[in-house]
Write a protein that binds this DNA or RNA. Structure first.
Lengths: 332, 332
DNA sequence: GGCATACTGGAAACCGCTTTCCACTGGAGG
DNA sequence: CCTCCAGTGGAAAGCGGTTTCCAGTATGCC
């Protein structure tokens, strides 16, 4: 293991000088020395010991990202955006996947705190359980007290900078768009009641319907994933249009309908939410509400890194956009 | 920032004792002391400084994973498996995405070396360029000389423990299965010639065909991604069956055919390779060669962590399995 | 020519934790 | 009763960098 001291000795300079040359200091080093050091470093194959650097500097160059499931295209896109932004800052990303267990979310914040990461990014829906939320908050607060930076993608419930998608409004807009096509009887595959993202989208959708004087949708709860959509759609009765509160559920619903010989959109229309990448290759292509996932991931990094310069944590609202595709047809 | 020393002082014990209690040492600590220390740590909200720990121990608890693109379900599944296995060992995973740039692959190994990660996992196809390969190898060697462990998912070209999918054999088996259905005129969407995975699959397929006395397939090169498949399939002429060397390309091909009104499998059959997760929700469902991606990710972690106990780097062959689905139909 | 003023290089104090070595204690064994 | 040893707590030397002072040198200016 070649250390900075080895390099310094090999170059015939002091440790301080070698450090200044190799690890971006503000101090200038004379041209001759600098070249000697760089040459020695190359010859010896020196690699900075980041752990030592982190310890000495008191700040690391890694960003922690907490997601539910990397295989879910939603989080994959978020992670991709975050990693691109992180790289632009010269940071690496350390990922923790909770597989939807809030306890592990808390545990990961603790672990990332121990790693003294530069920033922590929390993504995915918050839950209604106030106990879980306050414990997560406490853990985040502890981290921030010691100089950590945090950003959240989802609901503004953690007292930290937040990228907040307009779930309610997006769902409402979708409802109006679908109603404009003539649909009146809806079903909502609403996900679990305790997930705020799911609840918000479901509520926004129902409210918009009510605002139009349309009957209440049939609401079916279930898991927030592909299989949850698959199961939930089986219980739909009498609706002409189904809204799944996220795309992966909608994909599951599509599969279930297909396997039962129900044609989409001829027999029933289906819409989702998020506009995840793989959607475009589905048949029929899925109507959805578009969220700029990659950008959101990148924004979260910027938000966390910029910190809340003297004041309140910032709240960034993200607009959604309804995208009508083949899975929905107008009712004549 | 509360340090171990703060805890020790608060508990009225020495630094050594506090360390032994809080960070799994082999040494025993008396019950009374132990409890005092644990209590103090909890009260003060102590979090180990992993950077300091890494420096002192000379070994970190993070694993580096290098992938091409997290949004690609292939790598997402690999990463998922790796993260599960890593967690079982109490490690975290740091991810680098190269977006298919071999230079960044090398750069990431260097960065991960600087981080002194416990192990580095390299995934994705190797390239034919010997210069790139040898430079990557050199970087890996440097890392291993200083005690790093490496595993690779792909071709055994790096001189490190490797999880090697049976690309050739899998493709050959697929060719025989398709031929058994009566197909004789094939096209191969072969990806870029310099990607060994693509080349192996393409070659295995063609060889099997030759072995059966069938005519050579039409080979079309192009990018290894979804859009590459989309474009390449446009050039197919006169084949009854198209083999895309990976699933994402096959998905692109399916989309292109659909948009041109070509029916699959009625007008033409399509097959892919990998069996990525989102496949099951496609219409038609895609015939492919199944690879246990999640397990491969986990195996890579185990392989790297276990090291090459006194000897040659290990080579783990991974079997593939042909999965016939709707996108292929028998030719009467 | 003399002196203030950059510049630049080096010595050494830390960053927070691990671990080796030492010292001390109390009980087993002779 | 003394010796030996297992068991446990503490002091202190690193781990590999960063950075603050200090000192020496060359430069600018009057």
């Amino acid at each position: 293991m070649v250390t900075l001291e080895d390099v310094a000795r090999h170059a015939g300079v002091s440790l301080a000088t070698a450090s200044r040359v190799l690890n971006g200091s503000s101090r200038n080093v004379g041209r001759a020395m600098r070249e000697r050091v760089e040459k020695s470093a190359a010859v010896l194959g020196y690699r900075t010991n980041v752990a030592a650097q982190t310890l000495a500097r008191g700040a690391s160059n890694v960003i922690g990202l907490v997601v539910h499931d990397l295989v879910d295209p939603y989080f994959a896109a978020l992670a991709d955006g975050a990693m691109r932004a992180a790289e632009a800052h010269g940071h690496m990303v350390m990922v923790g996947t909770t597989h939807r267990d809030p306890e592990r979310e808390i545990a990961y914040v603790s672990t990332l705190n121990a790693q003294r990461v530069r920033a922590v990014l929390i993504s995915g829906s918050r839950v209604t359980d106030p106990d879980v939320t306050s414990r997560l908050r406490a853990e985040l607060d502890r981290y921030r007290e010691s100089g950590g930076r945090v950003a959240c993608v989802g609901q503004d419930l953690l007292g930290v900078g937040t990228i907040a998608p307009a779930n309610r409004e997006g769902a409402a807009e979708l409802a109006r768009a679908l109603a404009a096509l003539g649909h009146t009887r809806f079903a909502v595959l609403a996900g679990p009641p305790h997930l705020i993202t799911a609840a918000d989208r479901s509520a926004g959708f129902a409210e918009a319907l009510a605002g139009l004087g349309l009957p209440e949708p049939q609401v079916i709860h279930g898991p927030f994933d592909r299989d949850g959509g698959y199961e939930a759609v089986q219980e739909v009765t009498g609706a002409t249009c189904v809204f799944a509160v996220n795309d992966v559920m909608a994909v599951g619903a599509l599969a279930a309908l297909r396997s039962r010989g129900v044609r989409v959109p001829d027999d029933i229309s289906v819409a989702g939410f998020d506009d995840i990448k793989p959607l475009r290759d589905l048949t029929p292509s899925l109507t959805t509400v578009r969220l700029p996932l990659t950008e959101m991931g990148a924004q979260a990094v910027e938000l966390a890194l910029s910190g809340e310069e003297g004041g309140e944590p910032r709240l960034v609202h993200v607009e959604c956009e309804v995208v009508l595709r083949e899975s929905v047809r107008p009712l004549v």
